[in-house]
């Protein structure tokens, strides 16, 4: 832990091999993020962890989840400019899906929602897409609502790298990109997913849901009712990886 870089003017020590996001979280400094999960390799899709790097006269932005920590980096994260960019990213995600929080059973336990209120997002602002993807209720114990998916691929990674089942995948391109179930029928009931799978625990939003347990937690006692996501993320931060970084059951 001899090396360090600067984050918002403070020295952050790091272990070689850590990314800027990992080092910041380990040091108790929060950088907003959605698709990063401490047990998996960085993904880089949500872009919420984007920071500004100053080196000499030039400035550029980079996703801190994939940016290797290096000595002498000067990083700006918690500034009005960067947080405004993050707000726009969260707004894009809200406008892209059907995030009807008032009737979603993940409300209060949802990372997207918690990040929204933490950043002060008042409206999606953009024209809403209102996607129309049928729910998959085929499985006796599990429900999938694809209209809330933010394409973080955490379920894909968890199912492939930890559960070794590869139940999920992303399909399509551009705005039509969407989460699919890896079964000939496309139905969750025709996979070997189980309630105890890692893939069941990692969805940051309300896509992968266990049936018959919704709305059990009283309002006020849900995860993000207690403390904002900025505080919770630090509890989760330094942790050994459970993902193998590659799929062990398929050729991917």
């Amino acid at each position: 832990m001899s090396e360090s870089f600067q984050l918002d003017g403070e020295d952050i020590p790091y272990t070689p091999g850590q990314t800027v996001l990992q080092a910041a979280l380990s040091a108790g400094r929060y950088i907003p993020h959605l698709c990063y999960h401490p047990e998996f390799k960085p993904h880089g899709s949500c872009k919420v962890c984007t920071v500004k790097i100053a080196s000499g006269k030039s400035q550029r932005t980079a996703a801190s989840c994939t940016l290797p920590a290096q000595p002498g980096l000067e990083i700006e994260s918690d500034s009005d400019e960067m947080n405004e960019l993050r707000r726009t990213l969260v707004q894009m995600l809200f406008a892209e899906g059907n995030h009807f929080c008032p009737s979603c059973e993940k409300s209060g336990n949802c990372a997207l929602q918690a990040l929204g209120s933490d950043l002060g997002v008042m409206t999606a602002g953009f024209r809403h897409f209102y996607p129309d993807r049928p729910v998959d209720a085929s499985h006796p114990d599990i429900l999938l609502d694809f209209n809330r998916c933010i394409l973080c691929e955490l379920c894909v990674r968890a199912s492939c790298e930890v559960d070794e089942k590869c139940v999920f995948a992303l399909s399509g391109r551009g705005i039509t990109k969407h989460l699919v179930v890896n079964a000939a029928s496309g139905q969750l009931a025709d996979t070997d997913i189980a309630l105890i799978d890692k893939a069941m625990q990692v969805c940051p939003v309300g896509v992968i849901l266990t049936k018959r347990v919704g709305f059990a937690e009283p309002i006020g006692e849900r995860r993000y009712d207690q403390r904002p996501i900025s505080a919770q993320a630090l509890d989760d931060a330094p942790r050994a990886a459970t993902g193998k970084g590659r799929c062990t059951s398929c050729e991917e």
Binding site: H99, A124, Y130
Partner: peptide, 13 residues
């Protein structure tokens, strides 16, 4: 929520 996002009535969309 309705004025801001369409809200639950927009589930008819």
């Amino acid at each position: 929520a309705c004025a801001v996002t369409g809200g639950l009535p927009a589930q008819r969309n």
